[in-house]
Nucleic acid binder design. Structure first.
Lengths: 148, 148
DNA sequence: AAAGTTTTGATGCAGATGCATCGATCCGTC
DNA sequence: GACGGATCGATGCATCTGCATCAAAACTTT
């Protein structure tokens, strides 16, 4: 094995802790405002950005890093809540298009002030502009494709 | 609302993505080697570090950022697997001590080579020493207590 | 065009998590 | 020492996630 250095282990632990902590705080903020979880928001935002507010499930998965079976059931719940609608995919009957509804757009817009405020408070204010840029750069390296 | 800047939003998104990606890769590595999840490892490691391999559930929670009810049931499973043992806390019958067993120590030791190797491969190698240090510093800021 | 392969989305089942609440014990104040 | 409140760990219930697998449709190869 390649034993990781102390500095690497420390950074790794911090990544886990920091993510868990900040996500926890932000989720709590959303919940106390009566909103659903971040996953719901992520899906709504992706759809809203897509052409005509539509994306295939596979596109959503790639964007938000969900598992296929997981997204399938999340969409069930969101559809039951009237936030999205599944429509046939022209020319391929296996596939489908997920379309955001007006209610879905409205929810995303109501959530953003709370979510954005929480990002500022629990994330942005701790860092400042320059350090946010540095952090982005470092985290990008972690997203590289796997080594072989 | 305090609208977060573009740089902050980008860094925030990267934090989520990077954490999810790296954790996913490392968990997959552990699983394919037939090991339980990172949560189990975290608990075993904390216990091993504690005096006589013992900690109270509250101490474990604080160390690994678990919810109380969640840890309670994780300990049920780990106890059923013979990895830990619950013993009375001297002088307070509400509390308990969780003690790592020999099997628990052995599992932690068998997991570390796989886990450590995965940390190196999916995390350390992407960064290098100096950048790991920078990342630690930035993430530490996120762990500050909440603003009021 | 027939047969095998791949892709897409859904689902049964088990395991894990979140939420609310519980009973038991301890501590502080009177 | 009795009462009220706080702390500790557990649990019933609903939701969510992971795993394996499925059926249907599309694509590939011959």
């Amino acid at each position: 094995m390649q034993e990781p250095s102390a500095a690497v282990i420390k950074a790794w632990g911090r990544l886990i802790r920091a993510e868990r902590t900040v996500v926890g705080r932000i989720e709590a903020e959303l919940k106390s405002a009566g909103f659903p979880s971040l996953h719901w928001y992520d899906v709504l935002l992706e759809l809203k950005r897509g052409p005509d507010g539509r994306l295939t499930p596979r596109e959503i998965e790639a964007a938000v890093l969900f598992e296929q079976y997981n997204l399938s059931r999340l969409l069930d719940r969101m559809e039951a809540d009237g936030l999205v609608r599944r429509i046939p995919f022209p020319g391929d009957r296996r596939r489908q298009l997920v379309e955001i509804t007006e209610a879905g757009r409205a929810l995303q817009e109501r959530m953003w002030p709370v979510y954005g405020g929480a990002i500022s408070r629990f994330f942005g204010e701790k860092l400042g502009e320059k350090e946010a840029g540095q952090l982005s750069g470092l985290l990008l390296k972690l997203l590289q494709a796997e080594n072989t």
